[in-house]
Design a protein around this nucleic acid. Structure first.
Lengths: 202, 202
DNA sequence: CCGTCTATTGCGGAAACCCACAATAGCGCC
DNA sequence: GGCGCTATTGTGGGTTTCCGCAATAGACGG
């Protein structure tokens, strides 16, 4: 497993222990003594997983989490907590946190959770790439082409689309051809697959 | 809001208070004094939401939850807990519980959570219905028809499918026609939409 | 004004799709 | 054996799709 884990905890012993633990597992780790310090650096691209303590001087873990979400931070967040607090745990999980681990924690457990979080993050990033690619292709379509595409995807014949839009069949054919060309597919079925991957066919 | 909520808690005062609260909001409620009693009755179809206490004599709430999941019980489960226990809360949520509420709870909060759970349950049930309908249609296809359908959905021409399967084009046309007829769609595009709703196009 | 792009349209020919009508063969079940 | 179902195939005719070639009109920006 490779990747980079960031650890935000105001207890230096925890930061160092976790950094050493992850380094021994082949993962890079960087510690931050406060939420403020981490937010000031905010390494979007160079963070595969964030381990975040709940209770800290200054900004609390949950406050940091709120700011990260507002900043569209996508890496998975594993909370550490030394004091049980069910509502905070429940709310954070429902808000998208990856996990909640109590201190003192088992080394194997924290590593396993972190590695799973990284794997999930990787998969989600790949899917986001695909969606971005498809979106950029669809963005090249003119308004009319977009209109024709939706009718195509609903299974309408060219003559039906022509009637609906009040244009000639030949015009529909031209739009169809340009849609397929711009999106890089060979036929309407491939287009359906492309758009289906992007979002549910509406 | 209509529906039926079941409440499992060994404290009679809690059961009665919640039953009364929900009845006053137009929702039917039924109380059970133990997990064992609820599991013995196990009202699959007549349960839109289950409110389940964590700490009970006999089977605990989480033990009941495990058994419900093993029994393919689909209604959303809201846990009540009077003693904070973060690992239990985290584990239950990750296992699919809808929410975790601490006692003593605010009436409005519990009602709001329950109503949202019911709404989610309804939406999920409707989606499951759609998937079941589609599955039953696809189940009517013969092995050969299924084979042809997949090639169709990949955008292959009839002549290509014929070559791939080593059969005549006319045979491919016959299979196509039967596939559309059996699935109740008008053309290949509608078929793609149907299958796309069922599962991602592979 | 000129160039670029989109939207629109027509003609004619080729390819692809669709299907009624008809038939044979194989398999499984009663 | 008879029946029902699936798989397969052919013929001929109609419909739909596709596209090269060609052209006009409008909007926008330099």
């Amino acid at each position: 497993m490779t990747g980079t884990i960031h650890i935000v905890d105001d207890e230096e012993t925890i930061r160092d222990a976790l950094s050493f633990l992850f380094a021994s597992r082949g993962v890079q780790a960087q510690g931050w003594p406060s939420g403020e310090a981490f937010l000031a650096a905010l390494p979007h691209g160079d963070c595969d997983c964030l381990i975040l303590d709940v209770r800290m001087a200054g900004l609390s873990g949950t406050e940091v989490f709120d700011r990260l979400r507002a900043a569209d931070f996508r890496a998975p967040v594993i909370f550490l907590t030394g004091h049980a607090d069910v509502p905070v745990a429940v709310q954070s999980l429902k808000a998208g946190a990856f996990d909640f681990v109590e201190k003192p924690f088992n080394d194997n457990l924290i590593v396993e959770r972190a590695f799973e979080a990284i794997a999930r993050h990787r998969a989600a990033a790949a899917e986001a790439d695909t969606r971005r690619d498809i979106a950029s292709r669809l963005a090249t379509l003119s308004a009319r082409e977009d209109e024709v595409m939706h009718l195509m995807l609903q299974g309408h014949l060219n003559k039906q689309i022509a009637e609906t839009l009040g244009i000639a069949i030949r015009t529909v054919e031209v739009h169809r051809s340009r849609i397929l060309s711009k999106t890089g597919v060979r036929n309407a079925m491939e287009l359906a697959r492309l758009v289906g991957e992007f979002r549910p066919l509406a």
